[in-house]
Design a protein around this nucleic acid. Structure first.
Lengths: 106, 106
DNA sequence: TTCTATGATCGGTGATTTACGATAGAAGAT
DNA sequence: ATCTTCTATCGTAAATCACCGATCATAGAA
């Protein structure tokens, strides 16, 4: 994973509302449906939520599922995991002693 | 770690130049000195680098060490690890099956 | 077909970010 | 004391972001 990709994803995660949206999406059991639901759970306009969703989409952190007249979104857990992976190896690489300060992986 | 803190750190890491700066700082063996060195390693003006450094400072990702006429910076590995920790538990929390997609920790 | 609901997108506003050159202050050297 | 070096900060311009209301396209219902 290139630096640019890491930065893009980090950036997408770098807003509390977007962290919240991920959580809201994940909470919907069966992954079924979301979107107006998300707006309903937040003190923001629909257009604003839609924009935040787009940022998450562009970062590949969620996926769109057209469901008739509405769009549902599901969290891309593998992508989140991939970031964790890339991040951990970056942190490990930064550590001069090579000791794994904490997270072991990859 | 609160969402706001996670978002702040993520955001600080959400720029390729800043990832680079972390790497440059980490590469200086003995953690000794940096700053003009950083500017030298990047195609950016000194003032711009200084601003990026400030973002990293504010996020607690690096620490300033006054060294006479110059300032040196060192990476705060524990802070990086703390984010990894917070991130991993967040991702785990997002996963409906509770299975740990990958990174095990905390 | 016409109506309704959903949600993406457009246009706009104000705040923030990224970049720069210029400046200023502090520490060390002369 | 003066000069030099280093670097934070200021001022500025351009780009991007976060938010909003309004609009438009689409799918389903009437």
């Amino acid at each position: 994973m290139r630096d640019d990709d890491i930065a893009t994803i980090m950036r997408a995660l770098g807003h509390p509302v977007r962290l919240n949206i991920l959580r809201i999406l994940a909470t919907q059991q069966r992954g079924e449906c979301c979107c107006a639901d998300v707006t309903e759970s937040l003190p923001l306009a629909q257009s604003t939520v839609s924009q935040h969703i787009k940022v998450l989409l562009d970062a590949g952190l969620i996926k769109r599922l057209p469901r008739g007249t509405r769009n549902c979104y599901i969290v891309q857990h593998d992508r989140l995991a991939a970031l964790g992976s890339a991040y951990s190896s970056m942190v490990t690489g930064l550590n001069p002693d090579g000791r794994n300060v904490e997270t072991e992986l990859v």
